[in-house]
Structures are given as structure tokens and as C-alpha cells.
Design a protein around this nucleic acid. Structure first.
Length: 574
RNA sequence: GCGCCCUUAGCUCAGUUGGAUAGAGCAUCGGUUUUCUAAACCGAGGGUCGUAGGUUCGAAUCCUUCAGGGCGCGCCA
């Protein structure tokens, strides 16, 4: 259920049926009529812009039209006890007690599904996809959590979601990685000094991997790098993927599918995709202009296969082949995305770090070309995370090398705080992450604030000797909500809409913000009892009013669902 | 030179399919605890929504200009 959507439909139909009575010539923009929550200070349940929208296109005074629509609604729908016209022509509507009771009961009876908007599409979310040459860093964490929560959100809404990790286990970097491990092995086994050169990986984890490989290959001498290369690649990749999976697991993230770039090439998926695009004339042989930015000494003007991505909104066409005729990284990725399309996904989402901004247009173009615009790829870029401690930039660890690792972060802050903080900001804004703030157990720290609200509710149920999941009954004869309760109810009614916009716009950050607001209302109500005894919820071990109990349960339902989507725990005691 | 993102209170940020008096938290100042959890609550002050134009009944939101900050701009991955 989504009360706003329900009344958009009801009011829309009413207007449609009474077009003549309302003297409206044009209902073309009926779709831009919305029902939403009015600003709190108006003290109404719903607000509708119908008169403004229709007044504009029909050239009638919106306030006069509002009066007509108001009468219409009052006559036909029995759900409202009061309607007022406010501002330029908004209709503010107040629900009758009966419809309030009805809506409360609907939520209480369908707790598990409250907030779900039935959507049944196939989504594929590719996220993290960190190079398997070492552990995750902080930037990956943000993308990881964003992707994971987006997946939870879309699933909650009824969709099929595949969480996918693309393993870039092919190309020069893997050779360099293997070489770094080889030299570390030589260092341990033969006391050769490891000298850091430009293409080698510096981190201490390389040493750890080297040790493991030595242990599991006792007979191997590691004399010649080229002879050991295949073994080293295989083993090093295995170990570094384990490092990454361990990091992910500690953040509470499990992917459904790990897709290997090497397999992609083995299975000729790139050739297939390129052939397909050739047939469509989107890929042809040609020459490219030199790049505009920094000059590249390896650049050569030679004939090669080129994808005409400018046809699909890219700034320039893109090379599919390198100098030596092998596929570029992009060509491989095109093959990969063709596979995603062939797996019957309707929506593709790639979660990328800020340093991949420039890549998004070409791969989006490729998906359009491969699917005849039938599949939509959205590349969501997560901006940088800057870490601070005591107000000063946080230094990187020795273990990871030249970056701050996920483990460094996990050493300072728990999973729940990391997840909540990473999402408590829109993905296209930089995050300043201050450890001290997050460690504080106060209102400074929104995670604790929401968790604490739930802990208080749990404590209440302990006192009542009741279970949160017990069915509760509203006394409809003397039903009356006080100010605090009506505010909570109105906020709770917004939940399905939050879910809807957060999932349709891929903006999971709306959830922590919403939960914080809901928690604020609850804390406020709770504390009212401190200054005024009559606002205490409980008397002689029993709840005083069934209205109170139902509002508390509604709050708990939504907080549980929200935190579940965020993947943040909810302790019963704090 | 080009592309993407950002610019809203002292600080960190919400708010963009155009709507009502632009909202939170922190910080500052003041108040609340024999009590269902004070990890909380209540109150006060604080704004030319980066600049300059445009579109209209109405713009933080849409269009254009300029400025400032960030990330990129490969035949690397």
C-alpha cells in the first residue's frame, strides 16, 4: 500500500468523471497531479496540487477550481473530515478517524510487506569489481555498500536482483602483480632484496601472499619468473580474491556471481559481441585522433576496429583493439555486457568509483548498441571518501601500500557505523568521514540514534512482558491520536513513498535520512513523559492507550525494515 | 581544450518530474534526569540557496553566462 498513490488515483478518477461539472477542457496533464505530505505546521494528513496543475493548463483561477474540487471530494469520498484550501491553491486534506484506523490496521496486518511497491524486473548490479591485485580500499567500501543496499532495496520492492563482481584477472596488471609476488618469494627464500620499481606492488600483503604460496608449493624453486608465471598468477589471484572476499564479508556483503574476465575471453564472448556490432555497422575498421589530454608516447595511428560510440552520445569513438591487435579492456567489457544482456536482465547498474567517471559514456553507449536500446545501463559514480581522525587526514597503513584499506577502516569503526555513514550521503557528493564522530555515542552519530530508538521500544515491550510481533487491537470506539502520535503516523505513511523514490532513482541515502526523522519523532514522544507524567506510556505495568501501542509498533516495523535494507543491526538493548 | 560531479546557516549536509514561511545535525547560548533506557528531550539565535541573466502566476529546483572546488580525459586496467 501507498496511501499517496491511492489518493492520486482516487482523486484523478474523480476529476476525470466530473470533467464537465468542473468545466475543464483539458485534462492532458492529469499525470502531474500528486498527493504528498503537506508541511507539518499545516497539520493535515495529505496535500494535493490538482487545482494548481489543472488551473494552469485550463487558464482558470486555481483557488476557484480548488473550491469545486474540494466539494467534489467531500461529496464522493467519505474519507476526509476536513479539506482546506491553502497557499496558491493547494488542497489540504484531513482523514477521518475511521480511515486512520483502517490504514493503521492494514499496516499491522501486513507488517512484512508494508512499504513494498510491487515491481517485478530483473536487475543486475555490478559493484566493487576491485582489481584482484590486493585488498579493498576505502573507496571500494563506499561503492560496495552502495551496491549492496541498492540490491536490498530493489529486492525488497519485489525485483529479481543479481549482485555481481567482475574479476579483472587479465592483462598486464596481473603479470605485474605476479611478478611482485615472485620477487617477494625470492626475498624470503633467497634473501634477495625487494626493490620497489614503478610497476610493482608495494603492500605488505604481497609478502603474506608470498609466504602462503611458498607453504603450499614446497617443491617449487621459483628460479625463473616466466616458468613460474602460470602457477603464480593462479595462486596469487586466489589469495587476493580471498582477501577481498574477507573484506566484503566483514562489511556484510555477499555477491551472487563472480564473473572472470579470463573466462570471458576463453569463451569467445568478446568475438561474439564484436561480430554482432560489426553486423550492425557500429564497429568498423578505422583510425582515431590522438587523445587531447596528456600526450601518450605509445600512441600510434594505425588501422584497427573502432566502436562508433558517438552514435550513442559518447564524446569520441573508442578503440576495440590495441596496437598488437588484441582486445582493449573496453572491448572485453563490451563482451561482458553482452553476456549480462543475454542473461535477460532488463536493468543494468554499474557502481563505479570517481576515477571512472570518464568511462561511463562509452559503456552506456555499448549497452544501447548491443540491446537496441532495450536494456538500460545506469552507471552510478560514488565520489571520494576522505578520512579524518582528530580533525586531521588519516594516514594510510603500511600493510596495504599506497592506500587506506577496508581493514584499516574496520579496525577503527564497526560495520554498522561504516554502512550507515557511507549511505548517509548522496552518492555523488564527497564524504568526509571522521572517525571520532562515528565513535561517539551520541546524536552526532545517526546510527546509534536510530538503534537507540529501537532499543527503547524493545525495553518497553520487556516492561510490558509482551512480544513486538504480537497482534494488537485498536480500540476504535474511543480512538483519538494525540499530537505526537499523529506526527508518527504521518511519517510512517510516507515509508512506501520513500522506498519507491529511493529505488526508482537509485538513491538509497534517502533511507537513513528518513529513519533518522522517524527516530526523532519517537524520541520526542518518549521524552514527553519526563516533563509530563500523563504522557507516560505505561501505568501499573500496562499500556495506557492502544493508540500509543499501535504507533510504537508501526515505528518498530518501519525501523526494522529500513535497517534490514541498510544491513545494519538492531540491538534490543544498548 | 573537453566531459562528469559539487557550490544551500559558522561547519557537515538534506531538499531538483517547478509550488506553501528553504530544513536537519554539529557548533554557540539557555533549560530538563527520585522516571517506560538522559546514548535522550525542550527552547533561542543563525540564510542575497556561488555570480549574472532568462523562462512564468510561481525557481534552490528548468535554460544560458561567468566564477570557485573535485574527479577524469589511453591503443592501461
Amino acid at each position: 500500500m501507498n496511501i499517496f498513490q491511492e489518493y492520486i488515483n482516487k482523486i484523478g478518477n474523480l476529476i476525470l468523471q466530473n470533467q464537465k461539472k468542473l468545466e475543464l477542457d483539458n485534462l492532458i496533464n492529469l499525470k502531474s497531479i500528486v498527493v504528498e505530505s503537506p508541511p507539518v505546521e499545516f497539520n493535515f494528513d495529505l496535500s494535493c496540487n490538482a487545482a494548481l496543475v489543472l488551473g494552469k493548463i485550463n487558464k482558470v483561477n486555481p483557488k476557484e477550481l480548488a473550491i469545486k474540487i474540494k466539494d467534489l471530494i467531500l461529496n464522493d469520498l467519505k474519507d476526509f473530515e476536513k479539506i482546506e484550501i491553502a497557499g496558491p491553491g493547494f488542497l489540504n486534506l484531513k482523514l477521518t478517524n475511521n480511515s486512520l484506523i483502517l490504514n493503521i490496521n492494514r499496516i499491522l496486518e501486513n507488517r512484512k510487506s508494508y512499504g513494498k511497491n510491487n515491481s517485478h524486473n530483473n536487475y543486475n548490479i555490478e559493484f566493487v569489481s576491485a582489481n584482484p591485485t590486493g585488498p579493498m580500499h576505502v573507496g571500494h567500501c563506499r561503492g560496495a555498500i552502495y551496491g549492496d543496499v541498492l540490491a536490498n532495496l530493489l529486492k525488497f520492492n519485489g525485483n529479481q536482483v543479481t549482485k555481481e563482481y567482475y574479476i579483472n584477472d587479465y592483462g598486464n596488471q596481473i603479470d605485474n602483480f605476479a611478478k611482485s609476488v615472485f620477487l617477494r618469494i625470492r626475498e624470503i627464500k633467497y634473501k634477495e632484496r625487494f626493490i620497489l620499481k614503478d610497476d610493482l606492488y608495494p603492500g605488505e600483503y604481497i609478502v603474506e601472499i608470498a609466504k602462503k604460496i611458498i607453504d603450499s608449493n614446497k617443491n617449487e624453486k621459483f628460479i625463473n619468473f616466466n616458468e613460474s608465471l602460470q602457477l603464480l598468477k593462479k595462486e596469487s589471484l586466489k589469495h587476493s580474491l580471498n582477501l577481498i572476499k574477507f573484506d566484503l564479508q566483514q562489511l556484510g556483503i555477499i555477491h551472487d556471481n563472480f564473473f572472470s574476465e579470463t573466462d570471458l575471453i576463453k569463451n569467445k564472448l568478446v568475438d561474439k559481441a564484436v561480430n554482432y556490432l560489426k553486423k550492425k555497422n557500429y564497429v568498423q575498421e578505422g583510425y582515431l585522433e590522438p587523445p587531447k589530454g596528456e600526450t601518450d608516447k605509445n600512441w600510434k595511428k594505425t588501422k584497427r576496429l573502432i566502436f562508433k560510440s558517438t552514435l550513442f552520445g559518447d564524446d569520441t569513438d573508442r578503440a576495440m583493439q590495441k596496437n598488437d591487435g588484441t582486445w582493449t579492456y573496453f572491448a572485453n567489457d563490451v563482451g561482458y555486457h553482452m553476456d549480462k544482456i543475454n542473461r535477460k536482465n532488463k536493468y543494468l547498474i554499474n557502481v563505479l568509483g570517481a576515477d571512472h567517471t570518464g568511462y561511463t559514456k562509452r559503456i552506456t553507449a555499448a549497452v544501447s548498441a548491443l540491446s537496441d536500446n532495450k536494456v538500460k545501463l545506469d552507471c552510478k559514480v560514488c565520489q571520494l571518501v576522505k578520512l579524518y581522525k582528530n580533525g586531521k587526514p588519516f594516514k594510510m597503513s603500511k600493510r596495504a601500500g599506497d592506500f587506506i584499506s577496508a581493514q584499516d577502516l574496520l579496525n577503527e569503526v564497526n560495520k554498522d557505523s561504516i554502512r550507515f555513514m557511507m549511505l548517509n550521503r548522496s552518492n555523488d557528493v564527497e564524504i568526509d568521514f571522521d572517525f571520532d564522530k562515528v565513535l561517539e555515542k551520541s546524536k552526532d552519530n545517526p546510527v546509534f540514534y536510530v538503534q537507540y530508538a529501537f532499543a527503547r521500544i524493545s525495553s518497553l515491550f520487556r516492561t510490558l512482558k509482551k512480544d513486538l510481533n504480537d497482534t494488537i487491537k485498536l480500540d476504535s470506539k474511543k480512538f483519538l491520536l494525540n499530537n505526537h502520535e499523529i506526527k508518527i503516523l504521518r511519517k510512517v505513511l510516507e515509508w512506501p513513498k520513500i522506498i519507491e523514490t529511493a529505488s526508482s532513482k537509485y538513491e538509497p541515502h534517502k533511507i537513513p535520512y528518513y529513519l533518522y526523522e522517524l527516530a526523532t519523532l519517537f524520541h520526542s514522544y518518549w521524552s514527553k513523559g519526563n516533563e509530563d507524567q500523563s504522557f507516560k506510556f505505561i501505568e501499573n505495568g500496562k499500556i495506557k492507550r492502544s493508540e500509543t501501542l499501535s504507533m510504537i509498533v508501526l515505528t518498530a516495523i518501519v525501523i526494522q525494515q529500513g535497517m534490514n535494507i541498510l544491513g545494519v543491526s538492531l540491538p534490543n538493548k544498548m
